[in-house]
Design a protein around this nucleic acid. Structure first.
Lengths: 221, 221
DNA sequence: ATCCTATGAATGAACG
DNA sequence: CGTTCATTCATAGGAT
């Protein structure tokens, strides 16, 4: 976006205090976080299931051109089918933390109806699921509790949504360097085209979620 | 947002033009709309079906709910800035193979001074760096030992003919003894030339989507 | 546009 | 269990 920051004297200007600025900043940050989380969630939820023929990574599930039967590709490791995953997640979600040996066996049998699978696969899956879930949680907590060397400028906004492993987000982008004011809001000091760092600020497929009508808005600053 | 500007004389103030203000307002408005839509969407979806909370990457497909029918750009991934890369390489070069946990956090903070980054990014970077470093080493050694046995370029093959039914390397990986699972030559729906394939999803703990910390901000404007 | 390569990210499996 | 490894997927950026 271009903005003639020079010559405020000629324009009608608004003034806001630091306090207001802070509120604004938080608001935007909160929105960014919310959007990000919801988006992730939405993606996760729209991605199933039975009626889908394609499900692997790399498959385009609704490519109209490819109703696609299964093609066979050599694969060395087990990959849960969507159905299996669904069941696994469901069981995991029940909170019964440690699937016993018996349980594993039972689950395996259940899952085998939906694709090749072994007890080891199930076992590993739960191990990984738990471990990764925990790691994320820990990371989140650490970020919330510790302050450490918080750079006052850039991390101010980021702090609010540094959850999980997402590295969002839109908020960091909101202000433009040459606006002639409000510079304390910058989150990124990089040249937009050269570093590539800026790219990550995009809303993930936001135009997909939203209509085009927002295109002009979300990166304006 | 109120712009009383009270006490400008005593406080540090920021100034923004009407134009900037308008853009800001639109930005926030867009956020609000987005959040709202996503929220509704989410509620609608959780209303019925499963509690599937995690999905595999690769299945972000055209969502029937979304009217927007244009090409979408997936979320972009983090890219280290030159400075960050330099620092990372330096740390990696020190040979301390395992920067894990606390170290990661520290590094992340350090790097955040040079651009947006998250702990996961750092973690991934080291994982990849190690793995690829190792792979190259191995590859080099192999190339030295074996003369030209096979003029095969693995990387080239991967991209172009993944459809072949080749199952290479009769996986020495042992599966569960009792179930005797030799397994999973899974079908993979591979469409070499796909259209607007996009982003991947990741699932994080969807259980606790909105933290309390955002509630206070959500409706400020 | 198309293809290629480098690399960030996801994840099953293995290790201590 | 918590960490780490190995393999694979997907994408950004460059070359053709």
């Amino acid at each position: 976006m271009k903005m003639s920051g020079k010559g405020e004297g000629l324009m009608c200007v608004k003034v806001m205090t630091d306090e207001q600025m802070e509120v604004l900043r938080k608001q935007i940050s909160a929105y960014a976080t919310i959007c990000d989380r919801l988006l992730h969630m939405h993606k996760a939820m729209t991605a199933h299931q039975d009626s889908l023929s394609g499900m692997r990574p790399g498959s385009l599930c609704c490519d109209p051109l490819i109703p696609s039967g299964h093609k066979i590709t050599g694969r060395q490791r087990w990959t849960p089918t969507p159905k299996q995953l669904q069941i696994l997640e469901m069981i995991f979600g029940e909170g019964n933390g440690t699937p016993s040996k018996q349980k594993i066996k039972q689950i395996t049998i259940e899952l085998s109806h939906h694709g090749l699978i072994s007890e080891t696969n199930v076992y590993n899956w739960f191990q990984n699921r738990r471990a990764r879930s925990k790691r994320k949680q820990t990371a989140t907590l650490l970020n919330h509790n510790e302050s450490e060397v918080e750079p006052e400028f850039e991390s101010g906004m980021r702090n609010l949504h540094e959850n999980e492993n997402t590295q969002l987000s839109a908020a960091g982008h909101l202000m433009e360097p040459e606006t002639g004011g409000m510079q304390s809001i910058h989150a990124s000091n990089e040249n937009p085209k050269s570093s590539g760092n800026v790219g990550q600020l995009a809303f993930y497929g936001f135009d997909q979620i939203m209509g085009k009508e927002y295109e002009g808005h979300y990166n304006l600053f």
